[in-house]
Computed example of a mutant assay.
Amino acid sequence: MHLSGEIVSSVSSVFERDPAKKKEAEDLIEYIERFNELFSRGQYESAAVYAANCPRGILRNEDTIEKFRAVGRIKGKILPLLMYCEALVSTCLSIKQPLPANLTAEAIKCALAEKRLDLVMHWITLNKLVLSEEAGDAIYKYAEVDKHNRSQCLALAQIAYTESGVHKKAVLCLCKQGQLFGALDYLHYYKRFATEDYIFLLKHCPSVELIRLLTQEWKGKPAMLPLGETLVSLIHTEHRPYCIRFLEDIAKEGRDVLEQMIIKDETCTVEAWKEIAEMCLHVRREKLSKLLISILAAQEGVVEIPIDDDEGARLMDHVFL
């Protein structure tokens, strides 16, 4: 890939209509040709610095990234692409302009591919990068590769997601770090989450405690999710054990506690609670299933309907008059 073709042609066409800027065009073309000369000689470090400092940023782009990427590895030397990425970030300080999101994501992915989390940490602390969801995803995935530095990766990914407005993934990073109270504060602060965003959190970081926090009041504020609907959305997935354990934990606090939670959940239909009770029975939690049935039976305006089990247990259904 030779940059003196399309770019030189582009530079010429831009300035040929303005004779006063002809000299500038000639200087830019000379600069590009000098870069190509350094590159062709294998002087990649010099070429990287030269390209990153190019006037008008004409060599600070994805085409140049691909040119360095194509070189591949050179035994015993730093990856040429990483040289260019480092030069890009370094020059942000001198030109006083943040690195665009697309180049930032490429630089971060390159550094992580070379196991240089230290570079990514340094770059982000400079506050000279335009972070994006793509950058956050790269760091988040790297947390599974570098388990020793998992917490640092999740913290960095959270920064990227927050700055790029991908708040549900930022909260997920907090949950993955075990900072559930911090996650709840974050959720209440932004107040922009749809039901599917909360379910996203539960499916990607399932825990009994997170179910409890999302379905109960928090610091005097109403629950973010209705209890029954939340359980129904998870009860038929691999996260079923968390639902069962959650209900069992509530039941241990007393029948009245579970009953009040069911009564206050005005959005969940009796059919949905029937579904939950049936699943409890299916996984051999007969005691829990019968408790749910008896709580529903005790409510005003309920008649019996059969539950689908071998013993012919009964579940109740509301009659809306």
Rank of each mutant, 00 (worst) to 15 (best):
F181T: 10
K169L: 07
S4I: 03
K287A: 15
A111H: 01
D146E: 13
A297L: 01
R60T: 11
F193P: 03
I78M: 07
D185F: 03
D146C: 04
C268K: 05
V232P: 03
L131A: 06
S12L: 02
I74F: 03
S13N: 08
E196R: 05
Q260C: 11
P100Y: 12
A138T: 05
Y84C: 01
V89F: 06
P98N: 15
I305R: 10
H318M: 07
G165P: 11
N36I: 00
L126W: 09
F320I: 14
E30W: 14
N149W: 13
I78E: 08
G76E: 09
V257L: 14
L38E: 10
E30A: 15
E86Q: 11
R212W: 10
N61D: 11
E209A: 11
K264V: 13
A52Q: 02
I32V: 09
C175K: 01
Y198E: 03
R192S: 15
S151M: 09
P206F: 02
V319Y: 02
C110P: 01
R60C: 11
C268H: 04
Q179C: 09
S13I: 04
E37L: 14
E266S: 15
A157M: 02
A170F: 09
D317V: 15
A298V: 00
A52H: 04
S94P: 00
T195E: 14
L292T: 06
A25I: 08
P206A: 03
E6L: 07
L258N: 02
C175G: 00
A87P: 03
L156Y: 08
I78T: 11
K221Q: 13
L174M: 12
G220Q: 02
C153Q: 06
T125Y: 10
K23P: 00
E114S: 02
E62K: 11
V49H: 15
A251H: 02
A297M: 04
L202S: 08
Q260H: 14
V319M: 06
G165A: 14
Q97W: 07
R212A: 02
Q152H: 05
S9V: 02
R34Y: 07
G254C: 10
R212P: 00
C173V: 04
C173P: 06
S289G: 06
S10I: 13
E106Y: 04
Y242T: 06
A272W: 05
L38R: 07
V270E: 12
V145R: 12
G72W: 10
I124D: 00
S9Y: 02
E24F: 13
A143P: 05
A135V: 02
G136D: 10
K96D: 08
E163F: 04
V166K: 04
A48N: 08
I32A: 03
E286T: 14
I7H: 00
C175A: 09
E253H: 07
L82M: 09
I307F: 05
D18Q: 13
E133W: 14
K252A: 07
T104D: 11
G165K: 15
A297F: 02
K21R: 14
V319I: 13
E304L: 02
